[in-house]
Amino acid sequence: MGFLEWLQNSRVGLWISESDWGYPIVLNGHAVGMAIVVGVVLMFCVRVLGYNKSLPATVFEKLLVVAWLGFALNAATGVLLFLGKAQQFIVNPAFLIKIGLIVCGGVSVWLLTRMFDQNPAWAQENDMPSRAKIVAAFVIVFWLGAIVAGRLIGYTLGPPPPPSIT
């Protein structure tokens, strides 16, 4: 636990856990980033699943850039939030499940965009093939699951461990 404790006691860790504005500012960034990444990704998925079929699904190539910006914002703010209570997060099951779901969510979105790159003909298709729809359904489950797990962290985070004696 030495490294995690060192992280918590770093200047950034203390800014998050002890300053008046550090935690609220970073948490706000995390909420806005979530809305951007999950929101755009969900719209991409409902299009792949058959909503708004007359819209070429390839326009999401550019819109997904916006989603990845939200993802980057949340990776950055997420690391900062982690630093504030590293020792508590690392043993929290909801946190570990959330990280797993986000990795799956990110990889599956990337997989879906790769399928689009490899099948340029899909740009003209109204109906997406079922393998794209299956991936889109998984993407929705992963990201909604990540929101559920993330919310549960707030209710299940344990108390801080006693400081280690060196």
């Binding site: 809305a35 999950v38 326009v59 550019k62």
Partner: peptide, 30 residues
């Protein structure tokens, strides 16, 4: 309810981004 609220705000934000970025001209290819 909090989880529902987060999912709701994501749906609102995602669809508004698609609409507003197009109206702003930042996205123009649809």
């Amino acid at each position: 309810l909090e989880t529902v609220h987060f999912i709701g705000l994501s749906l609102l934000m995602g669809s508004m981004l698609i609409v507003d970025l197009r109206l702003l001209g930042i996205m123009r290819d649809y």
